[in-house]
């Protein structure tokens, strides 16, 4: 049975000891090679990475660097911290990770200034997505185009779905003026995401909810970037089929 995020029973929640829950993630990642725990730890500390990215962005001249770019460096720093942290040394992970994230963001932002716009997160992510879904299509040109359009539309829907509450507290759900049909579609899509196979769900959530690029999702899940791309396409195809024929 797939463990659902936030799916603990009330009775279990009553018994949970938060430091033990976190220690359990580290134990299973380090000593039992349970790769999924890397993603769970990443999600647990993603807010710290984002907050650090935001702080850096506010304190420095932007030079064309966007928050999304900075966040990618923060996520990279977080992943490095997760892989290097020694949970037996007694240093809280948050304190350990903060320094690594900060260093990575500062280094990344400096590198970023030297690169041209094509490396920016937004254009890179759009290329990655397009390549992912284009590679997955069949031979029929018209069907390919239709599927591509549907997959891109699902990607847009997912971005605006607010599958979970955004960190900044902003409510990005459609407002009262937006159509009922749109809201209903987004709701169904969110439900379908939670029915995806575990790895596909992780990719969709990390990418669309958390804005993590394929590169770092690959690192998080210990698979190749090409495999992330394939699984992303497979997930969108499932969502397209299920939402399209519901």
């Amino acid at each position: 049975m797939k463990a659902r995020r936030g799916g603990s029973s009330h009775g279990l929640k009553l018994l949970l000891v938060p430091p033990r829950v976190e220690a359990s993630l580290w134990r299973r990642l380090r000593y039992e090679r349970e790769v999924r725990c890397r993603e769970l730890l990443f999600t647990r500390y993603r807010g710290l990475a984002r907050a650090t990215a935001l702080r850096i962005l506010r304190s420095r001249p932007r030079n064309g660097v966007t928050l999304e770019d900075i966040e990618q460096f923060a996520y990279e720093g977080l992943l490095v911290a997760i892989d290097r942290y020694d949970p037996l040394r007694g240093v809280p992970f948050g304190a350990y990770a903060r320094r690594r994230i900060l260093g990575n963001v500062v280094d990344g932002a400096a590198r970023m200034n030297e690169l041209d716009a094509q490396h920016h997160y937004r254009s890179r992510v759009e290329r990655e997505r397009l390549r992912s879904i284009a590679d997955d299509q069949g031979q029929d040109a018209l069907a390919t185009l239709a599927n591509l359009a549907a997959d891109l539309a699902i990607g847009l829907l997912l971005e605006g779905t607010g599958l979970i509450e955004p960190d900044d507290g902003a409510d990005r759900r459609p407002n009262a003026y937006e159509s009922l049909a749109w809201r209903s579609l987004q709701h169904r899509l969110a439900q379908e995401v939670s029915r995806l196979p575990e790895r596909e769900e992780a990719i969709i959530r990390q990418h669309y909810e958390h804005g993590v690029s394929f590169t770092y999702i690959a690192q998080m899940l210990e698979i190749s970037k090409g495999r992330v791309s394939q699984l992303h396409a497979a997930a969108l195809a499932k969502l397209r089929a299920r939402v399209g024929h519901g």
């Binding site: 009775g11 929640k13 009553l14 949970l16 000891v17 938060p18």
Partner: peptide, 23 residues
């Protein structure tokens, strides 16, 4: 303590962290 908390939850007044403080 767990039993007491179960009673509270059954009455709809429970809270979510018990063992952390006592176990």
């Amino acid at each position: 303590l767990i039993v007491d908390e179960c009673h509270r939850i059954a009455k709809g007044t429970g809270q979510a962290s018990l063992v952390a403080e006592t176990e």
